[in-house]
Design a binder for these strands. Structure first.
Lengths: 152, 152
DNA sequence: TTGCATTATTTGCAGGTACAATTATTGCAA
DNA sequence: TTGCAATAATTGTACCTGCAAATAATGCAA
């Protein structure tokens, strides 16, 4: 047993969890204050905004979100009710639907992106130099790749 | 604009969020399968287990959890109902309460720790060499320190 | 010592989320 | 071409969470 505290996997994971949770809460509140948008809504809107034709199949969408399929369904329900997104049946597979960003959604998105981008810089980017950001990206990519084929 | 994709703060944060979310879901399911314990319960039990006298003030507990105060109250309610934790008023400040691990709680904790530790190694530690774990720990510590004084 | 701002914790309430079952459609295989 | 397992998405249900208000106790200041 060394004198200096050893960084075990458990300790590293725990600290990661804490830091990420705190950031999530900060981002959520700030986004809500700035453009009256929950972070979960924002996540949906960004995905669509950066997709070809500002549209995505429900499945693709939920895969890239931090949610299950059913969670994505309800979330899109709410956003659709607010007029930021609309649904359209998929021509090529009638089981599927597209979620599509509306004009209102795009406008809001542009404001939100500015606000959230600034928040990320303020609470995340500012504290890490470019090397650290690159390293973090690499580490998280490894973890994601190593846990790919898991449902949810 | 460089040819190689640049790792901006936003991209690094997004990847972090995805990876952590996936790990959380994996850990939660595995723990549930192995010892029939939700990850949130586990979080409470570990904190108490590693505290002096296996007890912690509600406030201290919720501070170290990924939850608000009120969330911690309800969570401890449920765990208490299951007999793994009990509450005791704080002698030194009658506004406060201690959450205390019961004997049952300690027994379960020992099993759970083994299972979850293995899971962390399998899905997290295994994919990162010791240097990366140390770096990650350092990065997350910076982020946590930089976002200290924020309520929630 | 009385009054009041502050702190610790809990509750009412209004969503948000996951799991499992359901509906609709696809496409392969006999 | 009929039957059936697989797939896309949704819905029923039960639980979990956060916010803000309520309750209770503290301790400082006039």
């Amino acid at each position: 047993m060394a004198v200096a505290e050893q960084v075990t996997a458990g300790v590293a994971w725990e600290r990661t969890l804490r830091a990420v949770s705190r950031l999530l809460r900060v981002f959520d509140r700030e986004l809500q204050d700035d453009v009256d948008l929950p972070l979960t809504w924002y996540d949906v809107l960004v995905q669509l905004y950066s997709a070809p034709d500002v549209r995505l199949r429900m499945q693709t969408l939920s895969d890239s979100l931090v949610l299950t399929r059913s969670g994505a369904t309800r979330l899109v329900d709410r956003i659709e009710k607010a007029g930021l997104v609309r649904r359209e049946p998929a021509a090529e597979d009638r089981r599927g639907y597209y979620a599509i960003l509306t004009a209102d959604g795009q406008r809001l998105m542009e404001r939100a992106q500015k606000a959230h981008g600034a928040g990320i810089e303020r609470h995340f980017g500012k504290h890490l130099d470019p090397d650290e950001q690159k390293t973090l990206f690499a580490i998280m990519s490894k973890l994601l790749a190593g846990n790919q084929n898991i449902p949810g």
